[in-house]
C-alpha cells in the first residue's frame, strides 16, 4: 500500500462524503424523534430521552473497541500485517474513548434526576470507567516515539492485553458490588415493554451513532495517515539535508535509510 492510497482515507472521497451526509441526516432525524415525536416516559419523564443518546453511545464505544481489537489481531497476523490495520486500530480507539466519555457523561446526567445521584458504584458503571482509562493509556502508548513498526507491534499487543482485561475487570467488579451491597437501584435502562416509537427512536439512535462512528473513524484514519506521511517526508528531507543530494539520497535507497534512521531522529 502506497502513501498516496493511504492518504485518501479508508472509504474513498465519494463514499466518505456520502457517509457524512447520511450521518448528518440520521442525527437530525434522531433529534426530531428523540425530542419531539417520542412520548415522554411514564415514570422517568423527559429525562428518559437521554437514553436515545446514552445507549447508542455505549454501543458505538463497544463497536469501536471491538474494531481496535480486530485490527490489532490483523496487524499481528503476519499475512495481513499492514500499517493500515495499525492506523485503523489507533483511529478506532480514539473514537471509542470519545464515545466512552460521552456514555459516562450522559449516564451521569440521566442518573441525577432519575436515581438522585450523579454516580453509583454499580458494576457496569465502574467497568465502563476502567475501560475509559484503559484505552486512554493505550492512546498515550501510541504516542511514544519510535518507528512505525515498533509502535504498531507494541500498540497491537497492548490492545489485546486491554481486551482480555475487560472481562476480568467486569467479573471482579460484578462480584464486588453484589457481595457487599444489597441489590443496587439499577433499573435496566430499557423497560422490556417500551412504546413502539420509543423503540424506533432508540434504533434510530444506534444507526445514527454507528454512522457517526464510521465517519469519524474514516476522518481520524485519514489524519493519522497524513501525519505518518508528513513524518516520513520530513525525515527524508532531514536526511537529504544532512547527507547532501549525493547518490545516497536517491529514490531507491531512501526507504531503507528511513527505517534505520527513524528511531534516532524522532523526538
Amino acid at each position: 500500500m502506497t502513501g498516496g492510497a493511504r492518504r485518501a482515507g479508508l472509504l474513498g472521497p465519494r463514499v466518505s462524503a456520502t457517509t457524512g451526509v447520511a450521518t448528518a441526516a440520521a442525527l437530525v432525524a434522531l433529534v426530531v424523534f428523540g425530542l419531539a415525536i417520542a412520548p415522554p416516559d411514564e415514570i422517568q419523564g423527559d429525562a428518559q430521552r437521554i437514553m436515545y443518546l446514552h445507549v447508542p453511545a455505549a454501543w458505538a464505544a463497544y463497536l469501536a473497541f471491538g474494531i481496535t481489537t480486530l485490527a490489532s489481531i490483523l496487524y499481528l497476523w503476519p499475512r495481513t500485517r499492514s500499517i493500515v490495520w495499525d492506523l485503523v486500530a489507533g483511529a478506532s480507539a480514539e473514537v471509542g474513548v470519545v464515545f466512552t466519555g460521552l456514555t459516562l457523561a450522559l449516564g451521569s446526567l440521566w442518573a441525577r434526576p432519575v436515581w438522585g445521584i450523579w454516580w453509583a458504584w454499580d458494576a457496569r458503571l465502574v467497568t465502563t470507567a476502567v475501560l475509559f482509562f484503559l484505552y486512554l493509556g493505550y492512546l498515550s502508548l501510541r504516542r511514544l516515539p519510535g518507528t512505525a513498526e515498533s509502535r504498531g507491534k507494541r500498540a497491537a499487543i497492548a490492545a489485546l492485553i486491554a481486551f482480555i482485561d475487560v472481562p476480568v475487570v467486569h467479573f471482579s467488579v460484578n462480584w464486588w458490588r453484589t457481595l457487599h451491597q444489597q441489590a443496587t437501584v439499577f433499573n435496566p435502562e430499557l423497560d422490556p415493554q417500551i412504546h413502539g416509537v420509543m423503540a424506533f427512536t432508540l434504533w434510530l439512535g444506534v444507526l445514527a451513532f454507528t454512522l457517526t462512528y464510521v465517519y469519524l473513524l474514516d476522518r481520524r484514519y485519514r489524519l493519522l495517515a497524513l501525519d505518518e506521511d508528513r513524518e516520513e517526508r520530513e525525515l527524508e528531507a532531514a536526511i537529504r539535508a544532512r547527507v547532501g543530494p549525493g547518490p545516497a539520497g536517491g529514490a531507491g535507497t531512501t526507504a531503507g535509510t528511513t527505517a534505520g534512521a527513524r528511531a534516532g531522529v524522532t523526538p
Partner: peptide
Amino acid sequence: VLAAGSRRRETLLPLLLLPVVTPVMLGATR
C-alpha cells in the same frame, strides 16, 4: 517493557498499569 526507557515512558507506566490491575486491587483487598 512497554513503558521503559525515556522519561516520557516512565510517567506512562502508572496510567497503563493501574486500570489493568483493577481486579488484583479488588480481589486482594476483599
